[in-house]
Amino acid sequence: MEWVNTVVQGVLLGGLYAMFATGLSLMFGIMRLVNIAHGDFIILGAYLGLVVVTTLGLSPLLSLIIVLPVMFMIGYVLQRVLLNRTLGTDILPPLLVTFGLSIILQNILLEVFSADTQKLPAGELGLSSITVTGDLSIGVLPLITFLVSVAVIGGLQFLFYRTELGRAFRATSDDQETVRLMGVGNSHIFGLAMAIAMAVVAVAGIFLALKTNFDPTIGPARLLYGFEAVIIGGLGSLWGTLVGGIILGVAQAIGAQIDPGWQILAGHLVFLIILIFRPRGLFPRSVD
């Protein structure tokens, strides 16, 4: 029973990791950009939530009313002003610029908020749980996190396959030159893609901050979890990303059950094993 409990906690944790991953997946899918500062933006989202919660007294989930549009705009401006200039055939500029951003952002957060750990007050939500059977109970907050993650992925899936903007995203992903002949401005489309990715990052940041203590240095680890979920799931598949996140979450939960020091390590090792045996992930898109 203890193990069932562990796996269930892992699955729910995986939802959060899937949220880390979808932003990355989106950016790579549409503009072949890998944003190394992704994890640090998640932490930025968490800090923005903290500022909103402490200054306006809103509840953490309500703080998204402000944090989400702010992150959306940061994403759009960042892409138009900075990242679009790095895109091209050479992978170095985007990689190094976003790596630089990661270090800059971490240290700015450190200067502004200090290295003290913070947490968003989860209140009742953090304490309550649903008892399934005698031994198995599910925390309400992890459950909500998971459901939100599924909703986010479902929403993105809808956006991608059922809307005009999504069609333009997919066309851009296929052929960046030809799509311009259709009247699609790459810079704007890339800006929107980054903006949407950052909106997801905002949600992920708030839920992360409700779940755990955070400080300015924990961004890169979140980048790695998201990245691992993307690769495990297979590039280009959003639902695959959810499965990737769940596998990672379960691996970490089982690792932690064996020895608390093994939580993160177990996740990384499962990722490396999958990379060795299934380098294209579990659900690769048929063609790249």
Partner: peptide, 9 residues
Amino acid sequence: RLRGAYFAI
């Protein structure tokens, strides 16, 4: 087994 930017991560 990873290419480009994914190799980096």
